[in-house]
Amino acid sequence: MPDGIYSQMMKELSEGKYVFTGELEPEKAGNVDEPIQAAKDMIGLVTACNVTDNPQSFAYVSSLAAAYKIQLETGMECVYQLRCSDRNRMALLSDVLGAGTLGLTSILALAGDHVALGDTPDAKPVFDLDSTTLIHMIRKMVDEGKDLAGNEIEDPPKLHVGGAAAPGAAHLKAEVAKVKRKIKVGVEYIQTQVIYYPDILDKFFKELGPVDVPILVGIYPAKSFGAAKFFDEYVAGVDVPPDYLANMKKTKEIKDKEKRKEEVDRVNLEFFIDFLEYLKGTPSAGCHMMAVGYPRIVGPLKKVME
């Protein structure tokens, strides 16, 4: 790896390659067999995979443990998602040091959904840091070998920190100002929330203007109507297009399992191939495919960009 670059994803982004990342979701279970299988299925198709941290505030296997195990067993580079909802700055620091120790090379720093949205609504929400101060803390750890209180860190971790952006935010100007703030404190890459509408992304890029930080645009090919509907209902700040949702709903009527799968793939390809064609003309540096539990769609989609 070149100097100061610790991950394959950062290497490819810095070389200007169009980068694809995938997403793996640990579950409420005593193992991570499913995401391990999904990671294996995506080897060679994506550069790295995000490992989600209690998405939508549903409490699952620790993303640190999952990312480590998946990376170890499959060789897939894992982007460790870390949210502020459940940990104070000490626990965050410990986990970042832990990630470095375990050989993880990239963290996606998130505020995280409020615990009230998930399956453990009586938990005490933490939010001691927010996404910006978490990014700042990680950069301080890596670059200066110090924690937020100024304490020295021996053999600082070597990893990259990314942040999120929500191009579909209700208040675009405030959102863009926040993204610029993250850039100011040293975020190294950005992965966006899921986007379905080109005009929304265009507005976002226009408002943001040219920036030095690579931006990977999030898309969500859903493996079933249920998954798409869940996304529509539970993911804060995202509306799934009604047409796409209706087409996905129709697939439920197909009794034969294999035929249904084919139809789901067809609906997804129809929608997302157009979207990917459009992405080629945007300033995006890559595409983050949150095709959770749906690795078979990644190959056919990626072909569009070749």
Partner: peptide
Amino acid sequence: KGLMNGPCGGVRVDNKCEIDEKKDC
């Protein structure tokens, strides 16, 4: 969420809060 550096990514349409549509972000 008590954030010192917001808004978070969950702001709803009409600039309402992620947690409660009756409250402003």
